[in-house]
Structure formats: C-alpha cells, structure tokens
C-alpha cells in the first residue's frame, strides 16, 4: 500500500500540509489568536460577543470548500472506516475528543501544527501524548477486534 502510493500520496500530503500551515498563519495574523480547530469550534458553542463571527465564517469556509471537493471531484475523496468500527463508536470517540481537546487546550492543529511550529514546550508535549495515546488505542483495537 505504501509503495503503491509513492510518490503522489506523499506529494499531495506535503501540498495539503503547506495549505494547512498557510491557512493557520493567515487566521492567526487576522485574529491575533492561535487558530486551532478545536478552540475555534468550541467558542462557537458558547459565543463571546465580538469574538464570534470570524469563527463561524472560518468554519463555513472549511465545510464549504471540503464539501466542494466531496461533491465535485471525480472520483470522490476517499472516506473509509476500517476494522469493524460501528457508528455508535463515533459517539464515544467524539465525546472523548471534545472533552480532551478542551481540557488539554488544543488538538492536532492548535498543538500539533501551531504550537509545535512555534517550539512551545507544552504543545510539543501535548502532541507526543495524543499521538502516543492514539497509537496505543489503534494497537489495542487491532489486537482485540480486527479480523
């Protein structure tokens, strides 16, 4: 699988990553805030006046643009759920991601991209912790349930 994807998947990954970095930089310059997706989304749920519209607009841009790819690209961007993961599992996963990103103060974008790029120690530690926890979870899942 890895070799079959070479080099296009990695080139696309680099290009996509650069776009994510650029988008984050643009949002940071325009707002003066660390533009992590979990934080942007969380503060839409409990709005503070004067700090709300940009979050909604950013998220609409995100959903609409990704949606254009989903609806218009042929073939559609792949969306696959492997390993017998039932739909209800995504309720538990979502709860953990919601609680965890708030308590931990960030997700893959805020800690993983922005904080890490700035060399912030807390973000680097957070990134190592969530990567390790995610890898351990995948290992456990594959060991216990995968066919």
């Amino acid at each position: 699988m890895i070799l079959a994807d070479f080099p296009s998947a990695y080139t696309n990954a680099l290009i996509g990553g650069c776009l994510i970095g650029l988008a984050s930089l643009l949002a940071m310059v325009l707002t003066g805030k660390i533009p992590g997706i979990s934080g942007i989304f969380a503060k839409v749920l409990k709005p503070v006046s004067g700090d709300f519209a940009w979050r909604v607009v950013f998220l609409i841009g995100l959903v609409v643009t990704a949606g254009l790819f989903i609806f218009l690209r042929e073939p559609a961007p792949p969306f696959e759920i492997p390993g017998g993961r039932k739909a209800w599992l995504f309720g538990i996963a979502g709860l953990l991601v919601g609680v965890g990103t708030r308590i931990g103060g960030g997700c893959t974008s805020g800690h993983g991209v922005c904080g890490t790029a700035a060399g912030a120690r807390d973000s680097i530690v957070a990134t190592l912790v969530f990567m390790a926890a995610a890898a351990a979870t995948v290992f456990a899942w594959n060991t216990l349930f995968a066919s």
Partner: peptide
Amino acid sequence: LIIGSAMFGIGWGLGGLCPG
C-alpha cells in the same frame, strides 16, 4: 494538558477523526 491530550488521543485512535 496531559490528561486532556491523552483523552483526545484515545478518541482520535478510536475513530480516526480529529476536530478539523
């Protein structure tokens, strides 16, 4: 920071989805 990130990681590893 540690507990929250660990919870996030477990949720991420269960479904392969993070917020973005």
